[in-house]
Amino acid sequence: MKYSVVIPTVGRPNLDELLDALVEGEGPEPVEIIVVDDRETRLGPAAARNSGWREARGDWVAFIDDDVVLAPDWKAQLCADLAGLPDDVGASQARIVVPLPEDRKPTDAERGTAGLASARWITADMAYRREALARAGGFDERFPRAYREDAELALRVQDLGYRIVRGERVTTHPVKPATFLTSVDQQRGNADDALMRRLVGPGWRARIGGQPGRFRMHVLTTAAGAGAVLCGLLGWRRAAVRLGAVWAALTGWFAVRRIVPGPRTADEVVRMVVTSALIPPVACWHRVRGELRHRRVRP
């Protein structure tokens, strides 16, 4: 069995260790290891992966993110997962493990990364049959971030009649470094959700096994806040107070839901309070931006 490895990268520090694990690890060697450097073009991981697999010569293409940690025998595990798979299997997904702190509850950012362990079809470690990639046309390069592009491809591959199976190989995905505004920056994904809805239909979230989103609550919170400001400017004090109370209640409820599962340290509480006020309007802005940008997209 011939397989290739494709790694899109923006130069993360872990890349050298990842390449060492691939070169020195136990198991059959890949036909090639293709690293696609996206630091200059910034076209996104979808475009980088497409560049990689189209140059690959293996019957299977294993996509790996540049921030994962591979087991010493990852190559052997991968080949064991792929060996003997019937022709109707188009892809094999690894089992992703996200190590969390053992001495405290995880932060909001850490819980977000931990969700990768149960996510479907993520390309942190995903091997596709090259034939399936060719028939599906590869990743949709209109997805500019590492968000939704892998699930959208998986849906198209399955619509062609292929199955996607979960292998036995285990890959570790460390918790991503987070800043104070990481959760706010992540709201850019709402624009990609708009593209998913255009491509897959209104039931796209159920098809990928996702949890119900919070966008409607974000719209309500943003509308209450904007209404309170507008009424205040117009001199409608009573309406401004009432709408302000609605905004405060919704924002507080959102913050509490994020604070309770975490370590509840002072800095985490402050972060949750501030970002819980910022997230709703930012999410709405990116969703509107996505709807306008992709308004002409058809399935």
Results as ranks from 00 to 15, higher is better:
V184S: 09
V229S: 05
L116F: 15
V98Y: 05
G232I: 12
T172Y: 04
R216S: 14
V10C: 00
E268Q: 13
A91H: 08
A47D: 07
D67W: 13
I164R: 06
R295D: 02
P45C: 03
A71P: 11
G90Y: 03
T113E: 09
G232A: 11
A191M: 05
G90W: 04
L199P: 02
E149N: 10
G27Y: 02
A21S: 14
C284I: 12
C231P: 04
H286Y: 15
P202L: 13
R216F: 11
D159W: 12
V97T: 08
P101H: 11
L82G: 01
V273W: 04
V256L: 15
T107L: 13
L78P: 05
R298E: 08
L181A: 15
V165Q: 14
A226M: 12
G161W: 13
E17I: 00
R258A: 14
A249E: 03
A47V: 00
T275L: 02
P174H: 13
A283N: 10
A80G: 05
R188V: 13
P30D: 13
A266E: 15
W121C: 08
A62F: 14
P261I: 10
D81C: 06
L250C: 09
L78H: 05
D59V: 06
S276G: 12
R207Y: 00
F139S: 04
D20R: 04
A255L: 07
D108R: 08
V229W: 05
M196E: 04
P281W: 10
R39P: 01
K176G: 06
G227F: 11
G137S: 06
A124E: 11
G112D: 04
L160A: 04
A239V: 09
P45E: 07
A283D: 09
R49T: 00
V6S: 01
E26D: 15
R129N: 10
P99H: 11
R57A: 10
L230P: 01
L43H: 06
R42N: 14
L85R: 14
W121T: 08
R295M: 03
T41M: 10
P45Y: 02
V274C: 09
R12M: 11
P177C: 05
E24V: 10
Y3H: 07
D125Q: 07
V6R: 03
S92K: 01
L70R: 02
V282R: 09
D59P: 02
R111H: 08
P72D: 13
R148A: 01
N14S: 14
A47M: 04
A21V: 03
D67F: 05
V170T: 12
V61L: 09
R120C: 00
K2W: 06
Y3W: 13
G44K: 00
P281G: 04
R257F: 07
T9M: 00
A239C: 03
V98A: 08
R258D: 11
V246I: 14
R264M: 12
V269Y: 07
G58R: 02
R214Y: 14
R95E: 01
A224M: 03
F143L: 06
A136E: 07
G213Q: 08
N14A: 15
